[in-house]
């Protein structure tokens, strides 16, 4: 166990946790998005309700859910810990610092984009997870979605948070591979392209939902 703790306590080990959990959460984003697309099936929400019922009762999914919670917790906890550690490495800052000349805006603002996505996550869980799984709402999941996105403030908050998620993924996706030691002229351009696409298409896919219900229902 000693080597395990030593490895993940070191600065590279902490990065490895960020990269591994980050990529795991990317897989969650993909699956969640694909499932949610059933909202667009023109059947009054039957398919979506059936799917949400399956997701909240299937034992295998429930076990995976625990893994997902651990993934989120590690990513958030480790991210904040690294941020504090990295901040403390420069107690006196520069009077003049031209960071834009050597790095991207997205790469420097991960804690902020991640922080806003975290606030979004809390609101999102409150609206759907807590209402249904904890408080036992009388509405179907589909009715909850329609009701929630009917509120323009709520919908636009979703869209804004998704833009920030895009910022986070823009740096995070390709950065995870670098941390895992994968950087080669053969495949790194492909990873960067996939990362860019992922950071645009995933938030865009999610944003269609609040916008669709806001504008049509």
């Amino acid at each position: 166990m000693g080597w395990f703790i030593r490895t993940f306590y070191s600065s590279i080990g902490k990065k490895l946790i960020m990269a591994l959990t980050g990529l795991f959460l990317c897989s969650f984003l993909s699956v969640h998005l694909m499932g949610n697309f059933q909202l667009f099936k023109n059947d009054g929400g039957a398919a979506f309700n059936h799917y949400s019922e399956f997701m909240s009762t299937n034992p295998l999914i429930r076990i995976l859910e625990i893994g997902m919670v651990i993934g989120f917790a590690l990513h958030i906890f480790d991210g904040i810990r690294l941020w504090l550690l990295n901040r403390s490495a420069r107690p006196v800052g520069y009077a003049k610092n031209d960071a834009a000349a050597n790095s991207t805006f997205f790469s420097r603002t991960m804690i902020y984009s991640g922080g806003i996505v975290f606030v979004f996550l809390a609101v999102h869980l409150k609206s759907f997870f807590v209402e249904h799984r904890v408080l036992g709402s009388e509405l179907t999941m589909y009715q909850s979605v329609v009701q929630a996105f009917h509120d323009p403030v709520y919908s636009l908050f979703y869209v804004a948070a998704l833009v920030l998620l895009g910022f986070h993924l823009n740096h995070g996706f390709q950065s995870a591979f670098q941390t895992l030691g994968m950087n080669h002229k053969k495949y790194t351009p492909l990873i960067k392209f996939l990362g860019l696409m992922f950071s645009i298409l995933i938030p865009l896919g999610y944003a269609t939902m609040p916008l669709y219900f806001l504008l049509t229902k």
Partner: peptide
């Protein structure tokens, strides 16, 4: 070398490429 680097109090890499 990594152990010494951490001990000296340098921050971690966040791949900004600066």
């Amino acid at each position: 070398m990594i152990a010494q680097m951490d001990k000296e109090g340098f921050g971690g890499c966040t791949n900004t490429k600066a």
